[in-house]
Design a protein around this nucleic acid. Structure first.
Lengths: 215, 215
DNA sequence: CAACCGCGAATGAACGATCATTCATTTGTT
DNA sequence: AACAAATGAATGATCGTTCATTCGCGGTTG
């Protein structure tokens, strides 16, 4: 009871702009998971958030802006997580850093169904919406850039024959996207554990001295 | 008189049901490429086809049915192409058959932008639409089943260590999906040639005695 | 401490735009 | 002439957006 001084929030009507915006973005993610992007309406989003119809247009200018902020929310969260691994100096070896990326890409927070559904939904509309495409592209290039640096270091350390860091990075990025898609579309056929094994097998075949087949 | 004389090239107004249906499906593919799935309207589809507004509801029962038939059109075309390679007895070796699959997956007919746009658009809505999901799933499992058989044969021939046909097939399918996505979203960054090299590198690392790094 | 007030956040009914669908009518084929 | 295919204006439903109104909060006053 006395633990928190903010327990009187229940009947509060006004909240800071940033709090409302995040409430609405989280509600949008849930709606996209349940109804798809084309089935997501302002009425559903605001009802999911437990707020009134007009509030989304109050804090975001339009539905389009709300969707764009939702996409940014998801991509930035992922890219920040990846950047944290790249900049963390507690990894002593290239090998351990690659292992960390592999673990991160299949961590519960990343492969949550609702977030995967948002990625895939925006991919589907990106070609027709330049803004979506730009955000997806930036995120994709950022992730590929990070892994390319890692693979380049590994290739130099291991003197692997026939390996090209750019090719490996493109392949790894594509495989992660494809595995996320399959986790979403065929969860009964592709488990999280198997997906991780598939990705590990790819890296283990390319960089055998850095990544073992079994962890 | 005789029914065989269909060669009347006059600007017929009436055409067989199946011709009309295909005209509309092809127009739908173009519309999805240009406007996305949520931006595709009956008015746009019928205008793209050069026909009147009401004709889509005449030959398909509803917009939903038209979209489902469009998805089936794309997935069946792909799966038939893959099945043709699997059943063609002119391939003397497992190796040559895998090469044929690799070539097929990046052939001009398969990676045409409009068709890739349709794949990705339906992936984005599949989670919210059981019918879409079922069609995508069936196609995915069919493709994975074919490649798994190929990889199983290769593994037995080559006595590779640490390779699992099911894992390889899941990885190959995921990578192809991911590369198609990147070809669509970042054509400036990932060329067709590079994408093919990425996929080849994956198989060459896993099955070095069957697939060379360079063709 | 209590009563009051003004500001701005929040609300939701109403509006207008968009779109799938229908069907009476037109037009081509046999 | 009889039939079927094709047309497109009209219809009704859905949804994003607006804005007059409501209501809670922090500050002020007595």
């Amino acid at each position: 009871m006395s633990k928190s001084s903010k327990t009187r929030k229940t009947s509060r009507r006004s909240l800071p702009r940033e709090v409302r915006r995040e409430q609405l973005i989280l509600a949008t993610i849930k709606c996209i998971e349940k109804n798809g992007l084309s089935g997501t309406t302002m009425a559903q989003v605001t009802r999911e958030a437990g707020l009134s119809l007009g509030i989304a247009n109050l804090h975001f200018e339009s539905k389009d802006k709300l969707l764009i902020e939702t996409l940014k929310y998801i991509t930035e969260e992922y890219n920040l997580g990846l950047a944290a691994i790249m900049e963390d100096d507690r990894y002593p070896t290239t090998s351990s850093r690659i292992e960390a990326v592999l673990k991160f890409d299949f961590s519960p927070a990343v492969i949550r169904k609702d977030k995967l559904a948002v990625w895939v939904a925006f991919w589907g509309e990106a070609r027709a919406r330049p803004t979506y495409q730009r955000i997806c592209l930036r995120s994709d290039l950022s992730a590929e850039d990070a892994t390319r640096k890692l693979f380049k270091a590994a290739i130099e350390e291991g003197r692997y024959k026939n390996q090209d860091a750019a090719i490996l990075a493109s392949g790894y990025t594509a495989m992660i996207d494809g595995l996320w898609l399959d986790l979403l579309l065929c969860p009964a056929h592709l488990t999280k554990k198997k997906a991780r094994k598939v990705a590990r097998n790819y890296l283990a075949n390319a960089l055998p001295d850095h990544i073992p087949q079994e962890p």
